[in-house]
Write a protein that binds this DNA or RNA. Structure first.
Length: 431
DNA sequence: TCTGGGGTCCTAGGACCC
DNA sequence: TCTGGGGTCCTAGGACCC
């Protein structure tokens, strides 16, 4: 059996955890640059506000209903997520952190020895997570990950279930499939949903009755076959345990829309250098080194001009590195290649691919080992200082911004709550 | 004025080699 | 002259997820 624990409206719930005046009223959280709605309280959903809607389009409606609006505050959400996951890691022998607000638990064994009724365990998880973090959750328990997802959705949708849905019998599995529209199945997006509707398939139950060859043909090959089997209760997707309770990535991206569009080369270099420095911090935090980096610059994707809106270039390094200064050198020369004069840029980013375990990189016969060690120590000190004194306390000249000033590329974030849990200066006060 | 950001997996097709 | 079949590696792009 697998359990899926999913936090309800996670970002809104994080804001509410520290601000009781937000309870029972409509609340939304905006994406980076205050662009779109990415988290909505139940009250906000009831007003008809949709996931991903552009903020500027719904602003009048938000004001009319006095919806409380927040810019996203990832320092807070990341820290709250760690607290939730830390507790969940104590519940089951193995867990897979699927996203910032979702976690799969492997319950094999538990069902037999510890908890004769797993629904009781699900209820206990909800109680404990809420007691420790004030974050509400729902729990779906089922024989496969896809069915656990489906069960979780039912737990959210039907209040009678008290936030826990346990598919322990064939009868319940059938009923759950029949109650689920096919477009709500994990792995069925817009394209496939349209295709399925055109063939008269409207529920997960109907989908589960199809033949494997049909799935192979119409649902993306082996992916579709696995989806079908998982709905039928046959395990195809195993738990991918998150070692030491953290998430380790195969690629790392840092990209941002600029607060104001940029036209000057030095501004763009400054922006991408700052992004590279942040991505390199993430890289070192997970103990990796990178051998392939892509750099991209984007124009206005909503412009009437024909595409392409985005231009990228790839740099393959002879030896993987996690050294910010080395990465910055490559980024600067890549930008010179990409740069087109008289162009308005709205967004840029870096992608690190081909991640290797740091220290186990292919040997470079020509590099002096001492130099590498000195750089590693420098990077460690840099990360420690920034952790202690706040991001950007120490940084590279290319990404320099005078203290207290906004960089030309800074995103808008007009409605940010304090970093209650991660910054001494912004500590939560009871008054 | 304003419409996010960060991931994963899979497939098809080209280049190249034997 | 004219031709087959297989294998590998890489990249671009599609589809999905939160």
């Amino acid at each position: 059996m697998f359990a899926l624990v999913d936090c309800n409206n996670f970002y809104v719930s994080c804001e509410r955890a520290f601000n009781p005046s937000l309870r029972q009223v409509p609340v939304v959280v905006l994406s980076n640059n205050d662009g779109c709605l990415i988290s909505r309280s139940a009250e906000a959903k009831a007003l008809g506000l949709q996931m991903g809607e552009p903020y500027f389009q719904v602003k009048p409606l938000l004001e009319q209903h006095q919806v409380r609006v927040f810019s996203s505050n990832y320092a807070l959400y990341g820290d709250m997520s760690r607290r939730v996951m830390h507790y969940l890691a104590s519940v089951a022998p193995a867990l897979e952190i699927y996203s910032i607000d979702e976690c799969f638990l492997d319950l094999h064994g538990l069902d037999r020895y510890l908890h004769p009724d797993l629904a009781t365990l699900g209820a206990e998880i909800r109680t404990q997570v809420h007691r420790r973090t004030k974050i509400p959750t729902c729990v779906g328990i089922a024989p496969t990950k896809t069915l656990a997802k489906l069960a979780n959705r039912l737990a959210k949708k039907y209040p009678k279930l008290n936030g826990v849905c346990y598919l322990d019998t064939e009868q319940k599995r059938h009923k759950a499939l029949a109650l689920t529209p096919v477009e709500d199945v994990w792995g069925i997006g817009r394209q496939y949903a349209d295709k399925l509707h055109a063939q008269g398939i409207r529920t997960a139950a109907q989908l589960a009755e199809q033949r494997e060859n049909w799935a192979r043909k119409f649902l993306g090959g082996v992916v579709g076959v696995r989806l079908l089997r998982e709905l039928q209760g046959k395990v195809c997707q195993h738990l991918q345990p998150s070692e030491d309770g953290t998430l380790s990535r195969q690629s790392i991206t840092y990209s941002r829309t600029f607060g104001t569009p940029l036209t000057a080369f030095p501004d763009v270099v400054g922006a991408v250098s700052a992004f590279t420095a942040r991505a390199a911090e993430k890289l070192r935090r997970q103990g990796s080194a990178v051998n392939t980096l892509s750099i991209f610059l984007s124009k206005d994707r909503f412009s009437v001009e024909p595409p392409p809106y985005s231009f990228s270039t790839v740099v393959t390094l002879p030896v993987a590195t996690s050294d910010t200064s080395e990465l910055l050198r490559h980024v600067r020369s890549a930008l010179k290649r990409l740069w087109q004069p008289d162009t308005v840029y709205k967004k840029a980013g870096v992608v690190f691919d081909g991640l290797e375990t740091a220290g186990q990189q292919q040997l470079n016969l020509f590099a002096s080992p001492n130099k590498g060690e000195v750089r590693d120590r420098l990077m460690q000190d840099l990360d420690r200082l920034n952790e202690r004194f706040g991001a950007g306390a120490v940084h590279f000249a290319a990404a320099f911004v005078r203290k207290g000033e906004r960089a030309a590329w800074d995103s808008r974030a007009a409605y940010q709550s304090p970093a209650y849990t991660t910054d001494w200066a912004q500590l939560w006060t009871i008054g």
